[in-house]
Design a protein around this nucleic acid. Structure first.
Lengths: 111, 111
DNA sequence: TTAACACTGAAGTATTTACTTAACTATTGC
DNA sequence: GCAATAGTTAAGTAAATACTTCAGTGTTAA
């Protein structure tokens, strides 16, 4: 389910917004409540909750409510999935470059 | 300039679209012309070019025109910047978890 | 020289996104 | 109980996005 393309879609979509990345950044330093997440952001609490719901739907953040406070934390496995997608493409490209370099070197030797 | 927040913005924004990710994926297997990029996509050439321009503006893709064909290739350093952003947050979280684990272990020992 | 090719740009449109405000629910502390 | 706290939901709006079509431009090959 981590390779579900729709999930990957939602993840990259979620990371596309600066406010949401700021929220992820905040959460990378430890769990936080909704109002704590909202505090540094120049928007209404309501807007923050909408962003948070997106983050949760994307799998990047997990939340649980105890009493009246919703505590949020990062889901590192989801982050790893996004990281992996990028890494695989970059490595594919770089391996290709390496092979090309080898080929050119061999070709030069054969003159 | 790889840490320019506006550039990071454009990069994650660029990766948010499935069609653009498909283009990056194609390019990870080697350079391609605009029409080659467009071929598997169910949209007009014009739309593909608009996506491509976004990818180029984000720094993820570099293109050069020779005669009438524009050849596109991946810019791995840009990909690495996105990868890094995610990685740093994930590691911060995981290091925090480790420290917490150590603390709990020590606390248990002290009983 | 002309026809096909590869791509580009402008303009328009439908949809999605990122908010806002306002009214509301559930918890907690006094 | 009552007020403050923490969060939620719905509805509306302005701007951004992802396309489309169409009318081009420059390049190549016959």
């Amino acid at each position: 389910m981590l390779h579900d393309p729709a999930q990957l879609d939602r993840m990259f979509q979620a990371l596309a917004d600066p406010a949401r990345r700021q929220m992820v950044d905040r959460l990378s330093r430890g769990p936080a409540s909704v109002s704590q997440l909202a505090e540094p952001l120049a928007m209404s609490l309501s807007a923050v909750i909408q962003h948070l719901n997106l983050l949760e739907a994307s799998g990047l953040v997990r939340t649980q409510k105890l009493g009246r406070v919703r505590t949020c934390q990062i889901e590192p496995t989801a982050l790893r999935a996004a990281e992996r997608w990028i890494n695989e493409r970059r490595l594919a490209w770089e391996r290709r470059l390496d092979r090309l370099g080898d080929f050119l070197a061999e070709t030069r030797d054969e003159t």
